[in-house]
Design a protein around this nucleic acid. Structure first.
Lengths: 194, 194, 194, 194
DNA sequence: GATGAATGAGGCTTCATTCAT
DNA sequence: TATGAATGAAGCCTCATTCAT
């Protein structure tokens, strides 16, 4: 299994940094190889082509990202706590790896539709986690039971995504994690008085 | 002023269609020229370079988009009505011009960071409109007064954006405008019971 | 029609010389472009890809080659005369354009099967001319009537081809055209006494 | 002597099959190694480089090919019989090893001039055998004594070669060996009446 | 002797942009 | 103004060969 060889991770890590620093379009394979400390050709022993590197970046990192969130959520008692934890973990992980944040929020969105399709597939488990929390919340009578599931999911994911993107574009000048509670409050209580 | 000459608009319109139909990366200048019915070189009499076409697409169309929303909002009495109108108009306009929806939600995001910076500039007035509504809502005691303005704006814009993107990616198979009320309810009342 | 533009012929001519001088595998597109006095990209305004240049070389030159032979043959009275003329013209034309001789006898045979298939298509009319002469000869009772047509064609073409290849590989140190009569005699009378 | 080690022959045999099945250009060293059941690097313990494999293919197989023909010819009484035997053996051997036929008639001709030079050297003994038969035939007064030796040799070899190539390209759908007599008759008696 | 992971040079092609007409 | 033929820079990928084990 190629994924367990050290060079596989070396190249993935190099790719994240190179893309974050140079932008998606200026990230030539040769630049990634150099940063990873391998020859250009070596890349192709581990990846089918350039696109495959990018998909793998997402697979590897998004996989970890979601696994972390799920394991944290499982320690929580109810849907409200779980939602808060999801938000905190989402913000924390991207805060702690700003290269990854730049890549996921800005650079990878420049990829063409074939790649974006792959990326959406990777994203699906995350959306499923959100769905599960909402359904639990409804069962626990914490959330309103007439909620339109896809709409709520879009609100939650859209809000988190937009918040992180803004933070990245403002060059990460403020503490993203600290906003988790407010975002949670907004999503649960809305903006209306009472 | 070049903007008032007929070929300027011809080229912008052609660009929207070509990008929507072919995707950002397969939209060569020559293809846009052909669709616009002009020679390749003519493009450069009206636009500095390819990026300039794309920025102009956004300037022109986003300008109209926002103007429409503002004029509709101004007929509304309070912040709640205005927010609902904004959502409806946002959804309606993109529903009615699906080429534009594809371009704004999917294709233009593939542009590089320079272009995206420009696009964000064009987006600013829209975000300001949202801010204004929120502030009005607080003054009118319709919205909670401890709201974090940027956060609320991100929630609103993030939710609308994600909702439209999902609709585009699902190939516009359902009625987006019909979702305006539910989205409005979610944003104002949150998801919690009570 | 691209074939009538001067650059089309310029590039074909350059390709013949570059391939003859450098060999098939060392004939980069950039080298052909340079010899033709055009930019690399210009090649692709006239040819689909590199292979298309080579097919066109054959189409153009082989077309002329065969046309010349046919028009000369038509002035001859009987099949025997026609066969002699075909041999003479075959030898003469390749003698007079040694670049073309090198390309057809040595370099173009290195092409891959896709290209060789195309080349064989171009060659077909020539083989048909040979067939026609043989059939005429039989009708005129000059040639034996139990002849196996494909076999005779293979003997004639194989002999001419091998003779020219040998001459090219011996670096054209002797007069090829002078051998036409002997070759004709061999083919018609065989090698046996009586 | 490396030639006597089993892996040497293993690799040669693998090369013939791989080239026949994949074509010259798609026959990477790694593919030959795999088919031979050795590691890529092992190839280089037995052959100087890739070209050396191909030259060796010819050396080994052509050597056998010619030896077979010579030993068959020596059993014949006169030049006429010998020529017929040569033709039969030439056709029979390639008929019986169609991989070799594909490689010699089609694929190896794609090699570059350096390699073809080597191949021609291997071919020389065969041409010498032909020459010897012709000279014998003249001495035996079976063949005309004013024959131009190189020319006759080119006719014989060219005819055989073209005949086999046609048979290979027609995907070996007819019996090549059965044509030996007709080809022999053509070469000895020519095509003319009387 | 045998392995196979690693190397890195090399070339075809696209397409935004220019400029002579 | 308008044209469109011509330009030429730039990058992904393959595969013969090496060499540490």
């Amino acid at each position: 299994m190629k994924k367990n060889k050290p060079k596989f991770k070396q190249i993935i890590d190099a790719a994240v940094i190179v893309i974050a620093e140079n932008g998606y379009h200026a990230s030539q394979v040769s630049k990634i190889a150099k940063k990873a400390g391998v020859a250009d050709g070596t890349i192709y022993l581990y990846f089918k082509n350039k696109e495959d590197i990018l998909v793998s970046v997402f697979e590897e990192r998004m996989g970890q990202f979601i696994d972390q969130i799920i394991s944290s959520i499982n320690k929580q008692e109810n849907a409200n706590q779980k939602l808060l934890t999801l938000i905190e973990m989402h913000f924390r992980q991207l805060s702690e790896d700003h290269h990854l944040a730049i890549v996921t929020q800005l650079e990878l969105r420049q990829s063409d539709s074939t790649l974006r399709l792959q990326i959406n597939k990777e994203l699906k488990p995350y959306l499923t986690v959100i769905d599960t929390i909402i359904k639990e919340g409804i069962e626990e009578k914490l959330f309103r039971d007439e909620l339109n599931l896809p709409l709520v999911r879009q609100m939650i994911f859209g809000t988190l995504d937009e918040t992180v993107t803004n933070w990245v574009m403002k060059e990460r000048k403020y503490d993203l994690v600290k906003q988790a509670h407010s975002v949670h409050a907004l999503l649960t209580n809305g903006i209306s008085v009472e």
